[in-house]
């Protein structure tokens, strides 16, 4: 049981750190200056949330060997428990590369779908049986509301915009939506922490998430693609080919200088 709770904390932390790393790719490359700043701030919040969660894992383990740095920089792909959605490149291409053209519609679509889930998850986790996780949830909720607001506004602006922006936003939603099935597909870890009251079951949140997503897509004149497709398994450690490249960039400096202090 204790191991499941640690995995659950890692799942929440890895979600935040991987999306934070992805969104930070826009730093210095944003479509406009304001969006460059917005995405950098969004990443900062996410990485801050990840730090609090990793620190909590290190405290819970009490092995004296864990630290936020070791957890973020010295684990490999199968040990990461983030949703596959969050490791995807900012692209709808079937075989994209990290260095390829980034598509802002994918960035906005993913931030919207994930933030819409997380406002519900953090709200639920405010009542977690684990006091520290409840405290982290209260803080993270305030930040995630701004992330959702930002992504929601741009979803509307791009969806209900020009023919080109509409087509790109629709393509992004079509590309991303199948990955959201993972949000609501139960895993052993989530079932276990729901039982202990430490985590929240995403199943009952699905109706509220659907309502938020459908309302926003309708307002944005976008169509929700038919459900179905492969259900990804990132949260169990089985990832897409993309996570390794994210980790390579994120971890290389720390691994080149282990235990460096500055």
């Amino acid at each position: 049981m204790a191991a499941y709770f640690q995995d659950y904390l890692l799942h929440l932390a890895d979600n935040a750190v991987i999306l934070g790393q992805r969104n930070a790719e826009w730093c210095g490359h944003g479509p406009v200056l304001e969006e460059d700043l917005a995405l950098a701030n969004n990443s900062l919040d996410l990485i801050g949330q990840a730090r609090l969660l990793y620190q909590h894992v290190a405290t819970v383990r009490k092995d004296g060997k864990s630290s936020e740095d070791l957890l973020a920089y010295f684990r490999d792909v199968p040990e990461f428990k983030n949703y596959t959605l969050l490791e995807l490149p900012h692209s709808t291409a079937l075989a994209p590369t990290t260095s390829g053209d980034r598509d802002y519609a994918v960035t906005i679509g993913r931030n919207f779908l994930y933030s819409a889930l997380m406002v519900l998850v953090w709200e639920g986790l405010k009542a977690s049986a684990d006091a520290q996780l409840a405290a982290i949830a209260s803080k993270s909720l305030k930040e995630t509301q701004y992330h959702l607001r930002h992504a929601h506004d741009w979803l509307l602006r791009l969806g209900d915009g020009t023919d080109t922006s509409h087509a790109k936003m629709q393509a992004a939603i079509n590309h991303l939506m199948p990955y959201t099935q993972e949000f609501f597909t139960p895993s052993a870890m989530e079932t276990a922490v729901t039982k202990t009251g430490q985590g929240v079951d995403t199943g009952p949140l699905q109706a509220a998430w659907n309502a938020m997503v459908d309302e926003a897509l309708t307002q944005a004149t976008l169509t929700r693609p038919a459900p179905g497709g492969f259900v990804t398994t990132g949260k169990t450690g089985v990832h897409s080919e993309h996570l390794g490249f994210v980790l390579a960039e994120m971890q290389s400096l720390a691994r080149a200088h282990p235990e460096a202090v500055w």
Binding site: V119, L120, W122, E123, L141, K142, T144, Q145, L148, R149, H152, D153, L156, A208, M212
Partner: peptide, 15 residues
Amino acid sequence: PSGCGSPVANVIQFS
């Protein structure tokens, strides 16, 4: 003043 009430209501109110 910071928002009170449900997180979803806050977001919808925002937008």
